[in-house]
């Protein structure tokens, strides 16, 4: 099954991407190919550049060097306007959910339907309710984001991103700060996305439970590049001491962490 996906060619490819902030290099030479319909996890310690990596895909950040390809098209050189067609096909769920405070959940989800799907307000709101139902938020549809828990907000944000059926969905730490039950619900949503809708998911996470339950493949980012890449089983069997230290969550070992 996985071989069949890989043969179709990668949907997203990073080629030797480098990115520095204020003279401090974060990504040095990062190369990674993500196959269609795959659930790819990007893992690593805080501040290693995982979120930075995926933000390049929708043009929120620009590379200093290297190339990024999406579906056979080079996208790292596009300008802000050029990225809008890409953003219609690549959705992102942010770490802070980023729901709009001034709108109810339904209005939040209806916004992309109205703006991108070209639906009228009434149709968009109806559609939005259906989408909220898919993430089990029907009874909170008319509440404002501030009145809800983190887990609910995150689910609503996922519903909003999925409303326009993007081909690739980026998740930035979708389970961080959630209780275990909410976290597992979100895991299931991501897995279903790949299995039932054929979408590609790239998930930035350090939630070990998610990583080993739903990932097809895992990319371990370390010192500005990919240190290890493989299926969960392959990573668990990795002889690399650094990888072992991270996935076992040990405080001492060969891993160099900035700030400690």
């Amino acid at each position: 099954m996985k071989d069949a996906k890989a043969s179709a060619g990668p949907v997203i490819e990073f080629r030797s991407v480098a990115k520095a902030f204020g003279g401090k290099p974060v990504l040095k030479d990062l190369s990674l190919a993500v196959g269609r319909g795959e659930v790819m996890f990007i893992i690593g310690t805080s501040g290693v550049g995982k979120s930075v990596t995926i933000k390049h895909l929708i043009g929120l950040l620009r590379v200093d060097a290297g190339e990024i390809w999406f579906d056979g098209q080079r996208i790292d050189q596009l300008d802000e306007r050029g990225f809008y067609p890409v953003r219609r096909r690549v959705g992102m769920v942010f770490q802070n959910a980023t729901l709009f405070d001034s709108m109810t959940l339904t209005e939040n989800v209806a916004l992309p339907l109205r703006k991108l799907g070209g639906l009228r307000m009434k149709a968009a709101l109806e559609q939005a309710r259906v989408r909220l139902g898919e993430v089990h938020l029907t009874e909170f549809a008319d509440r404002y984001p501030a009145e809800l828990s983190d887990g609910m907000r995150k689910r609503a944000a996922i519903a909003r991103t999925l409303a326009t059926d993007p081909e690739v969905v980026l998740f930035d730490e979708p389970t961080t700060g959630l209780d275990p039950v909410s976290a597992r619900r979100i895991d299931r949503l991501i897995r279903e996305l790949a299995d039932h809708r054929g979408a590609t998911a790239i998930v930035v996470s350090h939630d070990l439970t998610s990583i080993f339950t739903i990932a097809d493949r895992i990319a371990f980012v370390y010192q500005g590049g990919i240190r290890a890449l493989g299926t969960p089983a392959e990573l668990q069997a990795s002889p690399d001491e650094v990888v072992q230290q991270f996935i076992r969550g040990k405080s001492s070992g060969p891993m160099e962490t900035p700030g400690f």
């Binding site: 959705g91 942010f94 770490q95 980023t98 709009f100 703006k115 991108l116």
Partner: peptide, 18 residues
């Protein structure tokens, strides 16, 4: 400003809304 620091503006851009 609040929308900017909570990344709601980036959220809009990610939804392909200018």
């Amino acid at each position: 400003g609040t929308m900017t620091v909570t990344e709601q503006l980036d959220g809009l851009r990610a939804l392909a809304i200018d």
